[in-house]
Write a protein that binds this DNA or RNA. Structure first.
Length: 118
DNA sequence: ATTCTGACGTGGG
DNA sequence: CCCCACGCCAGAA
């Protein structure tokens, strides 16, 4: 029989989720980005929700700084998915990011766009 | 199969 | 600035 045909999946070993993790890991210290920005960089701007879903699926992995990813308004919408109630905010403040009422201060200034930076 | 939800984004008022 | 409605894709019930 034929030599192994590489199965059905020849290309794209990594899933969309893994790509999200890769980009998230590239976020510099003290900087933040939005789900839409990552989705757009991956070529799936319409799947911004999937980016957040990927984070949830990652299971609070330390490899993925999910706390650096927020929505377009700069609000910590996913803080409820972290262990603690304000763990996400703590991590951001630990990096020098000001957060008040789940809202990042100077979000536009701290915003890191993978498309523009990479 | 259908239906709903969700860590989103955009557009209109 | 806020609020509302729609689109979007994936997964759970």
């Amino acid at each position: 029989m034929g030599v192994n045909n590489n199965d059905t999946r020849s290309d794209s070993d990594i899933s969309f989720f893994d790509k999200v993790y890769e980009v998230a890991k590239l976020i510099p210290y003290g900087r933040v980005t939005s789900y839409g920005a990552i989705a757009k960089y991956l070529g799936a701007a319409r799947s911004a929700r999937m980016v957040g879903w990927a984070m949830n699926a990652c299971g609070n992995r330390d490899d993925v700084p999910a706390h650096r990813v927020v929505n377009r308004k700069g609000i910590l919408t996913g803080k409820h998915h972290f262990k603690g109630t304000n763990l996400m905010q703590q991590l951001l403040e630990n990096e020098g990011v000001e957060v008040v009422d789940n809202q990042i201060i100077d979000f536009e200034k701290l915003f890191w766009d993978p498309m523009k930076e990479l």
